[in-house]
Design a protein around this nucleic acid. Structure first.
Lengths: 340, 340
DNA sequence: CGATTTATTGAAAGCGCTTTCAATGATTGA
DNA sequence: TCAATCATTGAAAGCGCTTTCAATAAATCG
């Protein structure tokens, strides 16, 4: 176990010089730096990170807390996001520290503990306690999504409202009048934004959202199936589905087909596509019309943002909303005529 | 920012006593301990974890490395596993440190860095470099799965071989003769084990595996669909599918149905079911016969094991293989007669 | 009641690094 | 040539905690 002291003794130098050489300080002579680097490699020296952290005050790590109560983050969306975040942070030599907790207290503990330099907050709710807690501590964090708060905070979000407005509008223009919304859990901001977009488009067409056509729940294959079942049992049935996730779409599609109906012909579908690596929309049997925004891009982007934040960039420069593409394929078509 | 020193001064005690009181040492007077605890709460004191780590040598964290090159771990299986692991570790006040890397070097760096106290190794390959590297360093780790090595190591695994033996045997006993295997990537041990079980059952029935019926690939919906497509294009077609994941099954099932065939009637399916929270088999339209073992259980179990390991338990006590249930439902039936 | 435990506390030495500040020798300038 | 500057290095003080060892006061015992 080589440490700085041994390395310094071995080289006949002071710890200070060795440390400087290792950390690329300009004030150290090129020849000695080379010597130090060479010796460090030979002795396989690696600085103890706790010691370095204690001395510098940096943890070189970003925290993510899994909410204990619900399983929202234990889904494929989160896996993709987390993987991208982790990979990008690795390029900054930063790690992700993961923990599970019931409450915002854990954020507080981690922050005052200095276990991490900052947080990434996923799946924010409207008035997310985590944001107020961390703001009060003046501790860096980036939100994946946005919330309803007057506190300034950094965020990365996609234009959920716009995406679902566009999608709904497309369906309306095709002549659909009964458009079902299979959305995520209603307390989550992204679901709320999508609902808003949906409503705005309807309103523009002089229509009002029909609560019976709106389901807001965990975005699983299971719920997709169940909701489709409930929707197709209605009379008249909706002519189009707007889904918040390809997982839901998968379930819904299965039920639709089981009923002998055809997606794109009998029922139009637009799905939001997070570009999940385990579920490519390219391979859906019917080419899906989607609002597309790879969640991995968000992970990568947020990694950059949180790094900037902990390095002192102002919050105002760390607020980003990106537009979402609407990709029209063959799962959307004008509704079949039916007399009402 | 309260630290030990301030807290001690505030109390008129030495840092030593305060530290002892906070860490439940028995040698400290009950009255003073109460005083200390009370003051700590009031001042919202939280020990700096870097300092504590430096002093104790423990990191109170377990490492997980995402392989950079492939996306194997970025899938729902891993998400479930990771969530369960994280939650269980949290009960030990341990965190998960996540990073991404190309090679086994990262493990080495983390180990000598003392960033973590141990590792969990996922998706092991036959001769997994990570195991030899960590063994050489004498650094604690638990493998989720097993490998082919003579080095002693702790592991938690399910009986993949037995599960697929049982599943294959069931199909054979029903009279199936052309059984396709939709397996995971062939370099992964679990896929190999499942292939072995499949072959053993066939051998027992005097049959040999037909390589044309075996697909080994990432376990995605996409590949399930593609493989089913390839299989149903054969003549004669297989009468049963054995799938390594419900994701693949989902894809395969979709193709089957698109062809106007019926699962359970025209084609039997047995799927391995990891109990993914985003894809419950209970909600499959056809009740799936499955070999079932929730991957979350593995995560939880491994958390316990790795904690024991870092606390000094011998490796021999940390080697566990659990049996897998075969749950027979309606997706398996005797094959339709067809003259060959 | 003096000697010996026992209970409780404090002083201080690390843990292994970074970083300030001072010191040295070499170099430059007038 | 002497003072001033520069480049390079080292000594040492932390960072905030744990833990050993010694010290004290109280309690126990014969």
């Amino acid at each position: 176990m080589a440490n700085l002291k041994k390395l310094a003794e071995h080289l006949g130098l002071s710890q200070a010089t060795v440390s400087r050489a290792l950390n690329n300080y300009s004030t150290v002579n090129q020849a000695t730096r080379d010597r130090v680097l060479e010796a460090a490699r030979r002795l396989d020296y690696r600085p103890n990170s706790s010691a370095r952290r204690l001395a510098t005050g940096r943890a070189d790590a970003i925290g993510i807390v899994l909410p204990h109560q619900d399983d929202l983050l234990i889904d494929p969306h989160f896996a993709d996001f987390l993987a991208a975040l982790t990979k990008k942070l690795a390029t900054y030599e930063n790690d992700v520290v993961l923990t599970a907790a019931d409450s915002a207290k854990t954020y507080q503990r981690f922050a005052t503990n200095r276990k991490v330099d900052g947080f990434v907050i996923s799946a924010p709710k409207a008035n997310d306690e985590r944001i107020s807690v961390l703001s009060k501590l003046n501790f860096p964090f980036i939100v994946h999504g946005r919330c309803e708060t007057d506190l300034p905070y950094g965020f990365f979000d996609i234009d959920n409202e716009g995406a679902f407005y566009d999608a709904t509008k497309l369906l309306l223009e095709l002549g659909h009048e009964r458009i079902a919304l299979l959305n995520g859990a209603p307390d989550l901001m992204f679901a709320r934004q999508r609902l808003d977009g949906y409503k705005r488009a309807l309103a523009e067409f002089g229509m009002q959202a029909n609560p019976n056509l709106i389901f807001q729940n965990h975005m699983t294959v299971e719920y997709g199936y169940k909701h489709a079942e409930a929707l197709l049992a209605m009379d008249p049935t909706p002519t189009a589905f707007l889904c918040s996730s390809t997982l839901m779409t998968l379930g819904a599609q299965r039920y639709i087909r089981e009923q002998g109906l055809e997606v794109g012909k009998d029922i139009s579908i637009i799905s939001h596509d997070d570009g999940l690596s385990s579920l490519k929309t390219e391979s859906f049997s019917v080419a899906l019309t989607v609002t597309r925004s790879p969640i991995r891009d968000a992970g990568s982007e947020i990694a950059d943002m949180v790094m900037k934040l902990v390095k002192g960039a102002p919050i105002k420069d760390l607020q980003k909303v990106v537009p979402v593409d609407l990709i029209v394929r063959t799962s959307t078509r004008a509704p079949k005529r039916r007399r009402s």
